[in-house]
């Protein structure tokens, strides 16, 4: 019973933590850490909500006028978003061009240090360190005879 309770608590904790970060990225689009994707997503969502509300609650002439006003505001928002992108306001302007590639790169960059750290705990660090230090030793070995020759030359002269 207690294990089930712990599992339920852990599930609720993860379910609460993930949407909160998601909402942070969406809601505060012009505050800290702005991104072009969240900006466009929020403008599109709000536009759809207002258009649906006006179309469902007003008769034909008034609903079309209010829908046109909503679309005008959305177009102005998109234009200003493009101006902000030109001014390098958003953190990663290349996300608009290649969103999937950057997402994969971010996931790989976040996962690779953890994998390296987890593997380093298994004892593979000695091998990797040995593999990394061997070329350095080889370069030092290559450099050492030059130094010894230069050092030996005055010794031979003496």
């Amino acid at each position: 019973m207690s294990a089930d309770a712990v599992d339920e608590d852990s599930d609720t904790a993860t379910e609460e933590s993930e949407p909160s970060t998601f909402l942070d990225g969406i809601e505060f689009l012009t505050g800290e850490d702005p991104s072009a994707g969240s900006f466009l997503l929020v403008v599109g969502m709000v536009t759809c909500v207002f258009i649906a509300g006006f179309q469902l609650t007003f008769p034909a002439p008034i609903s079309w006028i209010l829908t046109a006003l909503v679309l005008v505001v959305a177009v102005i928002s998109f234009i200003i978003g493009a101006i902000l992108d030109i001014l390098d306001y958003f953190d990663t302007p290349s996300d608009d061009a290649r969103p999937a590639d950057t997402g994969v790169e971010v996931v790989e960059s976040q996962s690779s240090p953890d994998v390296a750290e987890s593997q380093s705990g298994d004892g593979r660090t000695d091998e990797t360190r040995a593999a990394e230090t061997q070329p350095m030793d080889a370069e030092q070995v290559d450099l050492d005879p030059v130094d010894t020759r230069q050092g030996d030359a005055p010794s031979d002269e003496n």
């Binding site: 012009t30 006003l69 505001v73 102005i76 928002s77 200003i80 978003g81 101006i83 902000l84 001014l87 390098d88 306001y89």
Partner: peptide, 19 residues
């Protein structure tokens, strides 16, 4: 809509000053 557009204009002004 007016508050939203004015907020965006303010953000554009900040971004232009930063740039």
């Amino acid at each position: 809509g007016g508050i939203w557009i004015s907020h965006l204009v303010q953000i554009v002004q900040r971004a232009a000053n930063r740039k």
